[in-house]
């Protein structure tokens, strides 16, 4: 089976105080193989980010299935136990945004190494890999042991991407990671994504400027705001 197979995935929000349901997307079906890169396209408000969040289970899908071929067995992301999703997030599924959540007194290096440690790696080794990652994203070495709470926006983004892309994952969900990056960082990101793709990592991404990653795209899921003609376009 493919790495991910979504069938009739639907998301509606029920807002209690409005006594209203808001439809985000409905009956979406698509599949994704290892090493494939799928762009999620569509106008603002068409539910692109919501789709990623449903797969990561930050949002609860209203109906449908999303079968994920995990190393531990096939599991439906839409209905799996919370602890199973938490396990997949530590080991197999990553979510990449443009925002870093720095914590006081945690150095850039530690912040980047943490996902590896959470996956079971020893600190020493994790820190070594974190150094390489920060180096490849071009963060000045003088800042590695400093606290990102005080960093500039651009420096924080380098730490953020290093952290989000350091651990081995089977599936990466990319929520506009290139937005507001400078040219050099965007370039490092493109390199890292091609490297991951070549290693067989599957990716689903929302990009404001898809031309940044045009050469990586294998196919596209187009969401339409009207929701009447949600379709899957493969090329």
């Amino acid at each position: 089976m493919p790495l991910l197979e979504a069938t009739l995935l639907t998301k509606r929000f029920y807002i209690d105080h409005l006594q209203r349901e808001i439809e985000v997307f409905s009956n979406l079906s698509f599949s994704l193989e290892s090493g494939q890169f799928v762009l999620v396209g569509g106008a603002n408000g068409a539910g692109k980010s919501s789709l990623l969040r449903c797969l990561y289970r930050t949002y609860v899908p209203t109906s449908g299935r999303a079968l994920f071929n995990s190393a531990l067995g096939v599991i439906d992301l839409a209905n799996a136990a919370d602890v199973d999703i938490a396990l997949l997030r530590r080991q197999e599924m990553g979510f990449v945004t443009q925002f870093l959540r720095p914590r006081p007194r945690v150095s850039a290096l530690e912040l980047v190494a943490e996902p590896l440690v959470d996956g079971g790696m020893a600190w020493e080794q994790a820190l070594e890999q974190a150094r390489q990652m920060l180096y490849s994203f071009g963060l000045k070495e003088a800042l590695w042991s400093a606290y990102p709470t005080t960093f500039s926006g651009g420096e924080q983004q380098k730490v953020n991407l290093s952290r989000a892309l350091i651990a081995p994952r089977r599936l990466l969900l990319l929520d506009e990671p290139t937005a507001s990056l400078d040219a050099a960082t965007r370039n490092s990101l493109q390199n890292r994504l091609s490297e991951l793709k070549a290693q067989g990592v599957a990716m689903i991404g929302v990009f404001h400027h898809p031309e940044d990653i045009q050469h990586l795209i294998d196919s596209e899921i187009r969401l339409t705001a009207s929701q009447e003609e949600v379709g899957y376009v493969a090329d």
């Binding site: 995990s70 531990l72 209905n79 799996a80 136990a81 602890v83 199973d84 396990l87």
Partner: peptide
């Protein structure tokens, strides 16, 4: 209501 844990 989600499924019982399978992977854990």
């Amino acid at each position: 209501r989600f499924e019982p844990p399978q992977l854990v």
